[in-house]
């Protein structure tokens, strides 16, 4: 049990770190198309690490093994849905921004 606690601590802290980094990115990056990359961090690794941390915590918090398995499966399905839906909505957002005439700022001429 103590091993599970240590692992879930590590996952939760790492997930919190990546989620806050994504939040900083969404505030700090200069224009819309770059900000979407910041949102991508929280959606993928931030969410995934926090949910894996919770899955590892499930057998500790929930006493009956059947309920613990069901809770773990539900958490993994939430993670799966987040990972499937977030790129779709991200792509829809980018496409709709492009078709509304919002052009991304590029800096190609730096060293290529």
């Amino acid at each position: 049990m103590i091993v599970l606690d240590i692992f879930s601590w590590a996952f939760l802290i790492a997930g919190s770190f990546f989620s806050i980094v994504g939040g900083i990115g969404i505030v700090r990056l200069p224009e819309f198309f770059s900000r979407m990359h910041g949102g991508g961090i929280t959606d993928t690794l931030g969410a995934a690490l926090i949910i894996i941390g919770l899955v590892l915590q499930a057998p500790v918090v929930i006493s009956s093994p059947k309920d613990a398995v069901l809770v773990a499966v539900k958490l993994l399905m939430i993670l799966f849905f987040l990972l499937v839906t977030s790129p779709s909505s991200c792509h829809a957002l980018a496409k709709s921004a492009m078709s509304q005439g919002l052009e991304p700022e590029l800096d190609n001429n730096k060293n290529s």
Binding site: G40, V84, S86, C90, H91
Partner: peptide, 13 residues
């Protein structure tokens, strides 16, 4: 979707 899922690259069209 895989390209969008890896941060740093977004498929726009």
């Amino acid at each position: 979707n895989s390209i969008t899922l890896t941060p740093g690259t977004i498929s726009v069209r």
